[in-house]
Write a protein that binds this DNA or RNA. Structure first.
Lengths: 165, 165
DNA sequence: CTTGAAAAGAGCGGCCA
DNA sequence: TGGCCGCTCTTTTCAAG
């Protein structure tokens, strides 16, 4: 996983319609080795999948809600049941177990308030939740699927050490 | 935008490596009309882009943080300056203006706490912020880029009317 | 890693129903 | 609209340096 791999990944996570020839050109490689690198990155699971990103507004899905959940049951079994229930709810795009005061955090995308209310009722009916807080997005300022990859080669690994040697 | 278009979108937002022939087969269409529909969906911007989704953990980006921001300046100009500053920070994957007590919400992806601290310092140095709350994810339970599209045809538009006619 | 090339497959567009 | 049939480009694989 060198600097060239990172360049390839940076290109592909921005635009996966690029041909191998184009990618090779931009990273300074010919088709064959470029293709081999991409194959390897896919086999290694670094490239997880290739998807089409759709415009939620054009599909009538204009409401994004961040939902904070607190529970009184912190067992593994409870989480598994909760995870199963949430996995079956397609309006939940992201779902994390959190540190701190909030136990779980969800990012939910729905058409409108009415649709959110329907979702909310299903959510709280799925399992007993101690507290659920919904925060509504008014405006999407930025949204990307691209991870922050080191632009230039990470350098000679400048390492900051806590204690001393 | 009929049921077939929705089927095509549902397929493509799950797996954009499918060939037009495969998609056509699954939606009951031959290549040409299927291809034309996809072209139209792209031209209309319903399909925004095609990207490779990378595995953050395999790239050493294991820490997701939800950041709530409060400001004392609620002017358009302030937001524009904030938006510009945040747009230049690649670790911010999502950035929304919110309704309610929290003014802005960010989803941030970084390597570790040290990287988050560096990001945090840059964030608060970019503009005066009244309050910044960081919530750290311990475990990713679910994460998808796929929007909740109506699975079956939305039906004969069952409309719920508030008043009565 | 590079060039070159060939076979298989997919995208693309014209034309007809 | 959708379907059939080519033309072209890309992807994928191989050989040799």
């Amino acid at each position: 996983m060198d600097a060239i791999d990172l360049k390839i990944l940076a290109l592909l996570q921005t635009d996966a319609t690029l041909s191998i020839a184009q990618i090779g050109e931009r990273v300074g490689l010919s088709q064959t080795p470029c293709w081999k690198r991409i194959q390897r990155l896919e086999a290694d699971g670094v490239i997880d999948r290739r998807v089409a990103v759709l415009d939620p507004v054009k599909l009538g899905l204009g409401l994004t809600v961040f939902v904070s959940v607190e529970t009184s049951d912190h067992s593994r079994e409870w989480l598994e049941r909760f995870a199963t229930a949430v996995a079956a709810m397609p309006e939940v795009l992201e779902f994390y177990r959190m540190a701190g005061d909030v136990d779980y955090m969800l990012r939910v995308v729905v058409a409108d308030m009415q649709a959110y209310d329907a979702f909310y009722k299903r959510l709280i009916a799925s399992l007993p939740l101690k507290n659920v807080t919904s925060r509504f997005a008014m405006e999407k300022v930025k949204s990307t699927t691209a991870l922050p990859l080191p632009a230039s080669p990470p350098g000679p690994t400048l390492r900051v050490v806590a204690g001393g040697e």
